[in-house]
């Protein structure tokens, strides 16, 4: 059982539509783990949503957490 992370926008080019992370107790460790696997993520801008809400600080995760990485879109 891992944590599923849904990926949006240009981040899909880096990490695909979704990523499964083996273990992450909170969002900080999730980001660290993602940055190790996908170094290109480090220099991109995105927000993290947990259970469909944007989080602004380190947030505890459990196996039911629905996690998404959303970059800003500018096209029109």
């Amino acid at each position: 059982m891992g944590l599923k992370v849904i990926i949006f926008g240009r981040l899909v080019d880096i990490a695909g539509n979704s990523v499964t992370v083996d273990e992450a107790k909170d969002t900080d460790s999730l980001v660290n783990s993602l940055n190790k696997t996908y170094p290109a993520l480090v220099n991109t801008k995105y927000v993290i949503a947990v259970n469909k809400k944007i989080i602004n600080q380190n947030t505890v995760l459990d196996t039911n957490s629905e996690i998404a990485l959303l970059p800003p879109f500018s096209g029109g």
């Binding site: 949006f8 926008g9 240009r10 899909v12 970059p71 800003p72 879109f73 500018s74 096209g75 029109g76």
Partner: peptide, 10 residues
């Protein structure tokens, strides 16, 4: 507000 990126839109 609306915006698009490749195959996705908001």
């Amino acid at each position: 507000y609306g915006a698009i990126s490749q195959f996705e839109g908001q």
